[in-house]
Design a protein around this nucleic acid. Structure first.
Length: 374
DNA sequence: AATACCGGCGAGT
DNA sequence: TCATACTCGCCGGTATT
């Protein structure tokens, strides 16, 4: 089994356990030991909405991410101590930022992939030793536990995908080291959906080709797979299945900002500025505070049938103006409702997406009055 | 032919 | 039955040059 240059790196994946719910346990110690369910209430009716995250006690009883809040309440109706809390993103963001600061201090090469997950390339600080790498992982875990009282699951492996799979293999509060010599046995018998990036749809596609385990996938004919999954995705997954992943750990710029809301009731059209005004203002404020402009403005409509529909427009000149964003978004929605097929006009949720981002530079900042007077 | 843009879809937290 | 709020990435079609 060839592992290419992948052998020579040592990567750590840190994954904070049931993050939102664990943040709530830290903030309100009296709820730990009880099932905790973090909810996104959509405001349509009392308890409309979905479960964002739950702690392990709730999960064990079947309350998992994505299920309707009413289903969760049904499941836990005989457990009076169960706790349902509204999601508080701002709070989790601040906790996340502090933890990412800790992680960043452990390696020059750092990559945050989500609010609760990051990679560290510790090839250098470990001196190539998995023994030392494991110590570093232990230090990271204990530092997060001491400063924030949060547990995490950590994977140590020769590349990002394997470190993620190692972290996934023991949760919560795990520490799994996967050395190059163990990779083949680790992967061989796992079902394909354990590979990050393979969800229900791709699993089904692979099944139609008789591919069930990661071992099967690694031995698959790349040509046949390219036909089934696309010319890039197919071969890429085969390489992953062979334990090869040369993606570097690198800090990435954010590529988009979006906001989406659930309408009070489904609509064939709606008062654009009423519904969109607040989220546009919020987005615009965020762009300005982060000194960013966007060159593409998009709208998102989620239909009654839960289909996602999008329209977007690329501007000549980048903007961060709430007025312009609202105008463009309203136009896009108007034309959407004019042109969409009948079923797609029944809209449940609407949102806005800003992309093609650029940093604001001095020269591009629009001249202000004081500049004129100077 | 290469690149930009667009819209759909899939996956993940 | 009921079905959030985000982010990222790939795919294929079409328009533009």
């Amino acid at each position: 089994l060839a592992l290419a240059q992948g052998d020579s790196r040592i990567i750590i994946c840190v994954d904070l356990d049931y993050f939102y719910a664990q943040c709530e346990e830290v903030r309100k110690p009296e709820i730990s030991g009880k099932p905790v369910v973090v909810c996104v209430f959509s405001g349509r009716t009392e308890d409309s909405g979905a479960v964002s995250t739950s702690n392990y006690l709730a999960r064990k009883l079947g309350v998992k991410s994505g299920i309707p809040i009413v289903s969760a309440k049904r499941i836990l109706k005989d457990i009076p101590e169960a706790v349902f809390l509204p999601m508080d993103r701002d709070y989790y963001d601040t906790v996340s930022e502090r933890i990412m600061g800790i992680l960043r201090s452990h390696s020059e090469r750092f990559e945050q992939v989500s609010i609760d997950e990051a990679y560290l390339d510790i090839s250098e600080n470990s001196g190539g030793s998995y023994e030392r790498a494991q110590e570093i992982a232990r230090e990271v875990k204990s530092e997060i536990l001491q400063t924030e009282k949060l547990t995490c699951s950590v994977g140590v492996a020769p590349n990002k995908v394997l470190s993620k799979m190692a972290a996934d293999s023991k949760k919560p509060d795990g520490l799994t080291v996967l050395e190059p010599r163990d990779v083949y046995n680790f992967l061989q018998l796992l079902p394909v959906e354990k590979l990050p990036g393979i969800g229900p749809k791709i699993k089904k596609s692979l099944e139609s080709l008789g591919i069930r385990t990661i071992g099967d996938l690694g031995n698959a004919d790349e040509g046949r797979l390219a036909l089934e999954l696309g010319k890039n995705l197919g071969p890429y997954l085969v390489m992953l299945a062979r334990g090869i992943d040369n993606e570097p750990v690198r800090e990435r710029e954010r590529e988009q900002y979006s906001r989406i809301i659930t309408l009070k009731q489904n609509a064939k059209s709606f008062d654009f500025s009423d519904a969109l005004g607040p989220i546009v203002l919020d987005l615009s404020k965020q762009l300005i505070s982060e000194k960013i402009m966007c060159r593409s403005i998009g709208i998102i409509a989620i239909t009654y049938a839960l289909r996602t529909r999008t329209r977007s427009k690329t501007l000549e000149t980048p903007t961060n103006s709430d007025k312009l964003i609202l105008t463009v978004a309203s136009d896009l929605f108007r034309s959407y409702f004019e042109t969409a097929e009948e079923l797609d006009k029944d809209v449940r949720r609407v949102g806005i997406r800003l992309s093609e981002l650029e940093k604001v530079t001095e020269e591009k900042t629009s001249p202000s009055l004081t500049d004129f007077l100077a």
